[in-house]
Nucleic acid binder design. Structure first.
Length: 827
RNA sequence: GCCCCAAUAGCCCAACCGGCAGAGGCAGACGACUUAAAAUCGUCACAGUCAGGGUUCGAAUCCCUGUUGGGGCACCA
């Protein structure tokens, strides 16, 4: 192929080695001026399973647009990349093939890294990290110890989510709404196990409140999902005495004002409380309860969550005492009450709660109305089956009678507090983050268990606790960590006195790894600390984060949490990690998600081979708004390729010398060029990459026209336009843009240039077309000066022959004038 | 069931504070170049904005109702 034809293969072969050796996008902190404007642009790092796919192609194309944009705006941009390389797929692959997970992982990383280089994203390759490197996970262990020290990492015995396929526990966040594992797809079962937790619930209120600060900078959808997940609810805690017992049952309610309407009490069958209460009942009741509990535990999550199914439960043979009126309330166990929310027990107010009403109607329990909204058609809930949930004056409620809901709630809390039987209380749906996993390929938990049961942190000097060799180790999931089988590794001396002790054999959830990696990038090669506080001060928080919405809750919530913890520990002076967030959509095909089983996969490598890196990247950005899915069947990579060829040819046609003063060039073309410059910032910053490209195409069309039929290739305005095209195109198609820049006679690198400033004096038109309407219908177009006054335009419109004849002798009622564009004559 | 978002040309998508529905692309038709084709260049056509109602001098844009599609939540006391 000749050198004057656009050939993406030649351009890729030419520029890749130059970028590789010159490293234009590496950031050396010692060379960045203290007052240089900086941007930290971060793309979610990949998990190394196989080669890159089209989803990666999209994130890294879009992230790179933003990174390159900020360089064009004169910022020093940090744009790092690494690999999230611990995790189950490596381990499962290793088991299947009998190899070390390390091998599988680092082979995949090598492959992805090569593809990533070929993709020419402007990454700083000097800061690459892999979370499975001891140099990285050492600091994971350090983080764990910091949290352990503050009581934020702890072990407890609890019902946990167990994935029977992967044979490990899961965090709540990893269980899908249908009760399956987001990893293996298996139906998750509950198991009672002792596990490590991070105390994220301590941060629930801040995690919720600080979402307000992200309003507008994060997608509204993500904010909503996080708010839902945290699930704050405000109400009161009420203690019920139990007849024949010294203990009380605390319950949480959002409606303490309805306490006089409580007619029974329900505890979760799988809560310890239920067993405790029933233990003193008669044998028949105990047996009935046992059978019920067994039934409940056999239910899948889907069955259990079906709100439409008939309420079930058993009477426990015990009574609670209503603290405000002394009434005896029978206590039931029923599975519509959850063991791990609130206190695992509720007061039931059937008149005002659908679930309680359903239960009461099934079991023939009394229903007492205590809120009576105005209106004749209020039917007894016991009859209608519909509870009264609206506001209204309270009745049958002693001191609360006549009060509305808000006042009654406040009054009731006062009563409870005065009696010492309750208080205001807020609960959250969010539970503590279960971080231990019974698998090999993760960060070992740096704890030693003494013979006396003490949990002893591994001394910081002994970090990292390295994963043992897989030699002779059975990685097959068997319900306990494979590390437990590494006898030599597990057996250690107690740091306190040298007596025999055991290492904790579990590894950490890989979401721990990714919860702080953005900090590690800032000093990725520093062996002495997790992150450098000075570098953090310079770069963090992340200005722009780019990645998939599938991490809306998990990763983003955890990263926010860990950031706040590190803030509180004094390491960070900010407490939100990501200032703004862009969620890109998915790449799909023919309306469906690509999947191996459906065989509708578009392969990254194939597309790049066929059309070139630039065309694929351009297509990703041009397809539509970034948050929308891209149907690969709807886009034209060929079209992108054609445009790149067209743009590239324009640079070749330019006949003026580099440095030519554009003044005096075609005013029309200069106006288009400067309009583009005036608009490009706002467009990129509002993520309208597709519009930027459309405008760029428009600009190229104008230059083409100018070259072919206007003032010609020597017009300095043509050079000016071609240079702007090269600069702007560098955000999307770096090879083509870099080559254009060279052809235009400039020193490399186009990606390190800055946009010229738009000259406002070039933007104004010499004349504009004003439309004249009569009753909203366009009747005439007038060519007028752009700075015409309302009065002059009005006069011109009324004097226009077409208007005069259209009006005949009708006289206008109103004339609305918006100079210089618009006149509407209303009759 | 509840909440949120969307719907513009055959297709992907633009349209600022309400002011001529079109920036760009794909697909299409025609023409130039060519022995021919590809490539390239040029020209053209195509919708009245999901439906119905309202506000307004004027609505794709604001409000209401509905339809369709997408997403989130859902026995959380």
């Amino acid at each position: 192929m000749e050198e004057n034809e656009y050939d993406f293969r030649r351009l890729e072969a030419k520029w890749a080695p130059i970028w590789e050796s010159e490293r234009p996008f590496d950031v050396n902190d010692s060379e960045v001026a203290a007052d240089a404007p900086r941007k930290y642009i971060l793309d979610m790092f990949p998990y190394p399973s196989g080669d890159l796919h089209m989803g990666h192609a999209e994130v890294y194309a879009l992230g790179d647009v933003l990174a390159r944009y900020w360089r064009l705006r004169g910022h020093t941009v940090l744009h790092p990349i690494g690999w999230d390389s611990f995790g189950l797929p490596a381990e499962n692959a290793a088991i299947k093939r009998g190899v070390d997970p390390r091998e599988w992982t680092y082979d995949n990383i090598a492959q992805q890294r090569a593809s990533m280089k070929r993709y020419a994203a402007s990454f700083d390759w000097s800061r690459v990290l892999h979370t499975s490197d001891p140099e990285y996970y050492k600091w994971n262990q350090w983080l764990f110890l910091q949290m352990f020290d503050k009581g934020l990492a702890y072990r407890k015995d609890s019902w946990v989510n167990w994935d029977p396929v992967d044979q490990t526990v899961l965090a709540n966040e990893q269980v899908l709404p249908d009760g399956t594992s987001e990893r293996s797809g298996a139906m998750v079962v509950k198991k009672k196990l002792t596990q490590w937790y991070f105390r994220i619930t301590d941060y629930a209120e801040r995690l919720l409140n600080d979402l307000d600060r992200l309003e507008g900078a994060w997608p509204a959808k993500v904010l909503t999902m996080q708010r839902n997940w945290i699930g704050k609810s405000v109400g009161a805690e009420v203690a019920f005495a139990i007849e024949g017992s010294d203990r009380t049952i605390p319950v949480f309610t959002t409606r303490p004002d309805t306490l006089f309407g409580a007619t029974f009490m329900v505890v979760a069958p799988d809560a310890d409380l239920a067993s405790e209460l029933v233990s003193e009942a008669d044998a028949a009741t105990r047996l009935e309860f046992q059978n019920y509990l067994t039934d409940v535990q056999k239910k899948t999550e889907i069955e259990r969550q079906d709100a439409t199914r008939e309420k079930t439960g058993v009477f426990l043979g015990r009574y609670a005492i209503n603290p405000v009126n002394g009434e005896r309330l029978p206590i039931y166990a029923a599975d519509y009450v959850l063991a791990d929310y609130g206190f695992g027990a509720i007061m039931a107010v059937p008149a005002h709660d659908q679930r309680d009403l359903d239960f009461a109607r099934t079991f023939g329990l009394p229903v007492r109305v205590v809120v009576q909204p105005a209106g004749d058609d209020i039917v007894d809930p016991a009859e209608s089956g519909t509870p009264i949930t609206g506001d209204g004056p309270h009745v049958n409620s002693g001191p609360l009678d006549g009060l509305n809901k808000a006042d009654a709630i406040a009054a009731m809390i006062e009563v409870l507090e005065a009696n010492g039987t309750g208080s205001a209380k807020t609960t959250y749906r969010l539970r503590d983050w279960l971080i231990s996993r019974q698998r090999f390929w993760g960060t070992p938990i740096p704890i030693i268990h003494g013979a006396d049961g003490a949990e002893i942190p591994v001394p910081e000097a002994d970090l990292p606790v390295l994963l043992p060799s897989t030699e002779g180790l059975d990685l097959k999931p068997k319900g306990s960590s494979p590390l437990g089988g590494a006898t030599e590794w597990v057996s250690v001396a107690d740091p306190r006195d040298g007596s025999p002790a055991l290492r904790d054999a579990d590894t950490m959830d890989t979401f721990v790894d990714s919860s702080w990696y953005f900090l590690r990038f800032l000093s990725a090669n520093d062996p002495t600390k997790a992150f450098d506080v000075e570098a953090v001060r310079q770069w963090a928080p992340v200005d722009q984060y780019v990645g998939g919405v599938e991490h809306a809750i998990l990763h983003l919530l955890y990263a926010r949490f860990i950031t706040k913890v590190l803030h509180d520990l004094g390491y960070l002076d900010f407490d939100e990690p990501f200032e703004s967030l862009l969620n890109q959509g998915m790449v799909i095909l023919d309306g469906a998600k690509m999947s191996k089983s459906k065989g509708n996969i578009v392969f990254f490598g194939d597309e790049i081979d066929k059309f070139g890196v630039d065309a694929v990247r351009l297509t990703m950005a041009f397809a539509g708004p970034p948050e929308d899915d891209i149907d690969w069947a709807d886009v034209s990579v060929t079209g992108s390729h054609k445009f790149l060829a067209r743009a590239w040819r324009v640079a070749h046609d330019v006949a003026s010398a580099a440095g030519t003063n554009p003044a005096g060039g075609s005013a029309g073309l200069r106006r288009v060029t400067h309009r583009f410059l005036a608009d490009v910032n706002g467009l990129v910053e509002s993520y309208k990459f597709n519009v930027v490209i459309a405008r760029l195409m428009d600009l190229v069309n104008h230059v083409r026209k100018e070259i072919d039929s206007g003032a010609g290739a020597a017009d300095p305005a043509v050079r000016e336009a071609a240079e702007v095209v090269a600069l702007a195109l560098s955000m999307f198609a770096p090879h083509a843009a870099e080559d254009m820049w060279e052809v235009l006679g400039h020193e490399r690198f186009v990606g390190l240039q800055t946009f010229p400033v738009s000259d406002p004096s070039l933007l104004t038109e010499t004349s504009v077309v004003a439309i004249v309407q009569i009753n909203g219908k366009v009747k005439e177009r007038l060519e007028v000066s752009p700075d015409i006054s309302d009065e002059d335009l009005r006069a011109a419109a009324l004097a226009a022959p077409a208007i005069v004849s259209a009006l005949a002798d009708a006289s206008p009622k109103t004339v609305i004038v918006k100079a210089p564009k618009f006149v509407n004559i209303v009759l």
